[in-house]
Simulated assay, not measured.
Amino acid sequence: MKQKVAIIGSGNIGTDLMLKIVNGSDRLEVAAMVGIDPDSDGLKRAAALGIATTHEGLDGLRRLPSYPEIAIVMDATSAKAHEAHHPVLVADGKHVIDLTPAAIGPYIVPAVDISDHGEAAAVNMVTCGGQATVPMVYAVRRAVDRLIYGEIVASVSSRSAGPGTRANIDEFTQTTARAIEVVGGAERGKAIIILNPAEPPMIMRDSIFTLSQGGDEGRIRASVADMIERVQDYVPGYRLKQDVQFERIGDNAPVRISGIGEVSGLKTSIFLEVEGAGDYFPAYAGNLDIMTSSAKAVAEHWAAGRAG
């Protein structure tokens, strides 16, 4: 039996998430699509598919006859809106999957820690940059003795960055940097996002730089290759752009890491490309696609556990 889900947010991310579930999930059923704009494309598409809709936000969702049957609520609004939604949904006994950078609840990156939070009332999907890069940071961490530093640069097409993304730039960098540490295992993390105005639009590109000690290049390469395959299970367009690069930082020329001091070790550089599946977004918007694909993977994992 499929688990009923509701999606709050009828914008691009919510609409793509809805289509991914409708067209490609044997464990989930979209029971409601929620927005605040009655003319949004997401609400119109949902209604055409026979899905219950409301343009009255969370209050409207709670008034729908199907609300008591909904097990999972996926919030694709904004960090500020989710701060208000979260306590209400948890109090109502819903399992909440947060696609905003609100950072309420444990961070979850399916390829890394999907099995660690099965009992959590709510989980946070970090950010698009976090979903793309934290698996690579963790891949290095598990292959070395000490991961001192992790830095990521997420470069996405300006066209794929809507009002919600632009309004949450600060939350993006803070949340992603924290996830590099909490989930990725780096002692210090840093995140940068670039909105590239190039035409034609560029596919999402991610650069990951780490500084580690106590590992060798072969183990890191093997760990990265394994992690690429794990992510590809739910994001087929996730791939290395070139071979993993290495540089030795000697004791005679250490680098200074804020809060840690001068350190030496092995610098690893990983360059990724994320192409979207094209369910609703164009293929270049891999930054949006990886968020919805990851959220769907989490919901299906939770639904499978509940069914079992």
Rank of each mutant, 00 (worst) to 15 (best):
G164K: 12
K241H: 09
G214R: 09
K241S: 13
T210V: 10
N196Y: 04
K241L: 14
T165R: 04
K241R: 15
R205V: 13
A198C: 06
G184W: 01
V244D: 09
E229S: 13
T165D: 04
G189K: 05
G215K: 06
N168Y: 06
Q242F: 08
G214E: 11
G215P: 03
I203P: 07
D226G: 10
E229D: 12
V244P: 04
R239M: 11
R248C: 05
K241F: 09
G265K: 03
K190V: 12
T268L: 07
A167G: 15
I203H: 10
S207A: 11
V182Y: 02
A167H: 08
I208R: 02
Q232Y: 02
A167S: 15
D233N: 13
Y238V: 13
G214L: 10
K267V: 13
Q232T: 09
D206F: 03
L211W: 05
A253H: 12
R221M: 08
Y234D: 11
L211R: 00
P201R: 12
P201W: 04
L266M: 13
K267C: 12
G265A: 02
Y238L: 12
M227C: 04
A179K: 08
A198S: 10
Q232R: 15
P201N: 14
S264D: 12
G276Q: 07
L195P: 01
N196M: 07
I228L: 02
V183M: 05
V274K: 04
G184L: 02
N168M: 11
I257C: 05
T176R: 07
I249W: 03
G215S: 10
D233P: 04
G278N: 11
G276K: 02
I193D: 00
P200T: 06
D216S: 08
R230H: 07
E275P: 10
G259W: 01
G189M: 06
D233W: 04
R205A: 09
K267I: 14
E187I: 13
Y238C: 12
V224W: 00
A167M: 11
Q242M: 13
V263P: 07
G265V: 05
I180C: 02
G189I: 13
P163Y: 03
A179Q: 07
D216T: 09
I192P: 01
A191P: 08
P200S: 10
Q242G: 12
R221W: 02
G261W: 02
A191H: 00
D243V: 08
T165A: 10
